[in-house]
Nucleic acid binder design. Structure first.
Lengths: 204, 204
DNA sequence: GTCTATAGCCAGATAGAC
DNA sequence: GTCTATCTGGCTATAGAC
């Protein structure tokens, strides 16, 4: 029966993840989550006490999945260009599997900016100092064109994440259907790093 | 008294714009909009009938403001590099004045994908065919490195828009305070186009 | 642990006086 | 046109049986 309990907790968290990520905290309904989990509302409250707490469980889990993935590559010992390649490829592949994740996190952080502050202090929050130093060094060595580490970092994240967050808009403007847009996203696994490296590499 | 009426309609729309853009359709409260407009709830319904209709008025107005701005530059007769410069500079300047606008539109489009479909057909929806042709041409002429027009377009929009949409996250990761982050955004008026042009220009 | 039934609240919408 | 008061429905949360 403990197995059953764990099953329910997992089923709820999974259903909640789906609904919250698609509709956001304010748009989600406990009834809908219960339906998706195949149980009733009372049980939701039995396991997670309140909508707010269930939401936080989902959000923290989402952040715990996505944040270390950011940090790991950036803090590795790879040369700069390899690091950029590995990061963009890995991240785009990952988000193709979890397309709602970035939009969800961004939207909820925009709703509760003070919530964002707290995250910064968590242990799994990505630290990019090493990456910033590496960029500075590469500029000094004349390996890449002069650029502020923060600007380059923002560019990398923007090129990687935005095509998912802004998918409906971009789909409309490029006039691509779903399949064609997914192809475009998939191509970006290599195209994004090519684009970035072309932008910064020092011509000989 | 007609003046008074128009004043109220405008005051409501303005208050609604603020609340909806910050909290989204599902997070917004009619009471809060009424308070911000300095009137009572009943009057909201008198002028706009329902929350849904008020929301649509706000959304359509937002889209009508932002969409032609996208299209105008892209359909001009400027040379490619000038066009990219003017577009990024103009857009970043504009969004600095309306920082919630892109996130609002993107989030609501993600909620109602069928809503996105309809937008495509509206007359003020930005048409990028001319821009796509121009990119193809520049590739053929050897003016820029080979790149798919859609990929380049997505890159331009990503670099321009995402730093606003993902501000809380990026602020946290770069460890910048509000003022410093705003400086970073402001610098992007010129930095983004430099970055893009470096990425695509053909080395001689 | 799991359910049904319901309490209690809150938000959108309307009635009706002025 | 503008207000106060109120209806109505829906949603979170809990009580209580099993």
């Amino acid at each position: 029966m403990e197995n059953k309990t764990e099953n329910n907790e997992a089923k709820i968290l999974n259903a909640a993840k789906n609904i919250f990520q698609q509709k956001g905290m304010t748009g989600a309904r406990m009834q809908e989550i219960a339906d998706k989990a195949g149980i009733n509302k009372a049980l939701l409250h039995y396991y997670y006490r309140s909508k707010q707490l269930l939401f936080e469980a989902v959000f923290n889990q989402a952040f715990k999945i996505i944040a270390p993935k950011l940090g790991a590559v950036l803090n590795s010992d790879l040369p700069l260009f390899d690091k950029i390649k590995q990061f963009t490829q890995g991240y785009i592949s990952f988000v193709i599997e979890h397309p709602y994740l970035p939009g969800f996190i961004i939207h909820e952080l925009n709703q509760n900016p003070e919530f964002a502050q707290q995250l910064t202090k968590k242990k799994h929050f990505p630290n990019i100092q090493k990456f910033q130093k590496q960029i500075e060094q590469a500029v000094k060595m004349g390996e890449i064109k002069p650029i502020s580490p923060n600007q380059l970092f923002v560019n990398i994240i923007s090129l990687t994440v935005f095509p998912f967050v802004g998918a409906p808009l971009l789909k409309g403007m490029t006039n691509l259907n779903d399949a064609a847009y997914n192809d475009l996203l998939s191509s970006r696994k290599t195209e994004v790093s090519d684009f970035i490296i072309n932008a910064i590499k020092q011509e000989k």
